[in-house]
Design a binder for these strands. Structure first.
Lengths: 221, 221
DNA sequence: CGAGCTTGTCACGACTTCGTGAACGGCATC
DNA sequence: GATGCCGTTCACGAAGTCGTGACAAGCTCG
């Protein structure tokens, strides 16, 4: 899940980014209304978390501008303003939910998940399988044949993405976007290196990752 | 937790009452606005769940009447009316949250819990065990292998939380929130330090606490 | 008011992770 | 079979993460 945090108080932003990252999500951040608008207008995020009081361009105006651009990404307002009429303003500007500071991280997380219209990880199929490799998204571990193998975060994310797209071609560019959050060509062989490490850890089962010359990779039995 | 459901559609009311009861809560119910007002005005409930379209006295008017009586019990509106201006009406009448039908029970539960500002009831399991470590929540002591070890309150809370979530990832953010009640990033390594102390006290059994780089910790044999 | 205990903070060191660049190897085209 | 391209693997090193001991602030209890 990819979340954009638009918040000028860096201690709060840090806290949210850290919490989301630990939970296995990708978090982008912006410190001003303008930056936030630019990033949000790409429309690549699942949820926007917007502080109402921002430098340059306040949160309400930012969301209104976004809605005028026909960007429908769900918005969670995050603010210290708790009066009824202030909440109402939030909804009228096009917000989808409203969370008053101070708040508990778990509540924040629950609301973000609800807004993304994605069932929480606990409700979906948490185990991805391919051949004798099975990856548990909740416990964050991987079973190869009979024994558990340890994976580093990046390796885990890579394998997860490959298994989610079993039987489909996964291009290098897609991997860089989704696993590394790179939006440019690093001009190095990061992907290949990591795939190599992954295959090594998978041992004989490493062959479920097929190379498609000139295109990318594919996970298949 | 005691919840009052004011809903005329008995299939929905049944569904909610059943779910709440199974989760260990007490649910009262009323089928009309008048009955609901009478029950709610006693002020004994933690949360009111109110349908907007009710016979005799509609939900909005009911909540307005309640607020006039200075009853501040949190209200969750539950309705099929989802337009922005309808949501706004809900807040203006004195509602605290608004959930649009159809909804998932888990989301309903999360919102009710949030409104009551109380952690969800966990089954009261007096003794938590993992390997040869067992923690008695009533006597507030811990047995490691054969002998009793003294734990400080914070250490105890940390171990309790880890054992309650055996086999699950416990992120630093979750720990800060549930064990320390911090809702921000302390920017220090409190968690690591306490984990270190905990492991030291557990001696050889300290290895039931596994480190998950980049995510947090997990208790497991 | 002082002793002792608890627990947060800091500093430092060890370890892990992961990107980089280079060397190697195999496949395809001619 | 030669050539060039693409993918694989390895070793290195920088950055980041985690563990631990020492210290200090705050609290409790006498």
């Amino acid at each position: 899940m990819k979340i954009l945090i638009i918040e000028d108080d860096s201690s709060i932003a840090d806290y949210l980014v850290k919490g989301l990252t630990e939970a296995g999500h990708v978090a982008d951040r912006a410190g001003t209304g303008h930056d936030g608008l630019m990033l949000a207008s790409q429309g690549v995020h699942d949820v926007l978390v917007v502080d109402r009081l921002l430098p340059e361009l306040d949160g309400l105006s930012m969301v209104k501008a976004l809605r005028n651009m026909k960007i429908a990404t769900p918005v969670l307002f995050l603010t210290a303003l708790s009066r009824v009429d202030q909440r109402v303003e939030g909804f009228e500007a096009g917000g989808d939910d409203y969370l008053v500071k101070p708040f508990a991280f778990s509540e924040f997380m629950a609301r973000v998940t609800a807004l993304a219209r994605r069932p929480p990880l606990t409700k979906i199929e948490p185990v991805l399988t391919c051949g004798s490799v099975s990856l548990d998204r909740l416990k964050r571990n991987v079973n190869v044949a009979t024994h558990v193998v340890d994976f580093q975060p990046r390796e885990f994310a890579l394998l997860e993405y490959l298994l989610l797209h079993q039987g489909e071609i996964v291009t290098r560019t897609m991997l860089l976007e989704k696993v590394w959050d790179f939006h440019f060509d690093p001009r190095t062989n990061v992907v290949e290196t990591l795939v190599s490490r992954l295959r090594a850890k998978l041992g004989p089962e490493g062959q479920i990752i097929h190379t498609l010359r000139g295109s990318g990779y594919m996970a298949k039995e």
